[in-house]
């Protein structure tokens, strides 16, 4: 493959990367809820619910950006469209994802430190 890639391919790769990461967050928060339930009781499932909701929000935001803003279904982006789409929320998504991952890390620390030996 030679020459610069079409911007919409970059947007697609990025949307897929968001999808993988969101799936990881869902799996991680589900596991954290299950494991914390051993010591916290049913309240621990809140971790799973919050994590899953957050991942859904991230997915929807990334998808909206991939398709074009405000829910218009445009699978084939022109170069110019891909350029504007690629610049949509950016930092907010990244910050939310980093925050959710750090919170999941704290939940994992709680799992390990309260695990019955």
């Amino acid at each position: 493959m030679s020459g610069p890639a079409h911007p919409s391919l970059a947007a697609e790769r990025t949307a897929l990367a968001w999808r993988r990461t969101a799936l990881g967050l869902v799996a991680g928060s589900a596991a954290a809820g299950r494991l914390l339930a051993e010591t916290w009781g049913s309240a621990a499932w809140g971790v799973s619910v919050v994590g899953t909701l957050l991942a859904v929000v991230l997915l929807r935001a990334a998808r909206r950006r991939r398709l074009g803003v405000h829910g218009r279904r445009r699978w084939a982006l022109t170069s110019a469209e891909a350029l504007t789409v690629g610049r949509d929320p950016g930092g907010r998504l990244v910050t939310a994802c980093a925050g959710a991952s750090v919170l999941l890390g704290l939940a994992a620390l709680a799992v390990v430190l309260t695990w019955p030996v």
């Binding site: 993988r20 690629g86 994992a108």
Partner: peptide, 26 residues
């Protein structure tokens, strides 16, 4: 925009690495 998107994917790769480390520790 491709550079911004690549930067974002690098962040996401790090985030997933972090998730894998959490899974390993747990």
């Amino acid at each position: 925009a491709r550079f911004s998107l690549a930067n974002e994917r690098t962040f996401l790769a790090w985030a997933r690495t972090g998730l894998a480390l959490l899974a390993a520790g747990v």
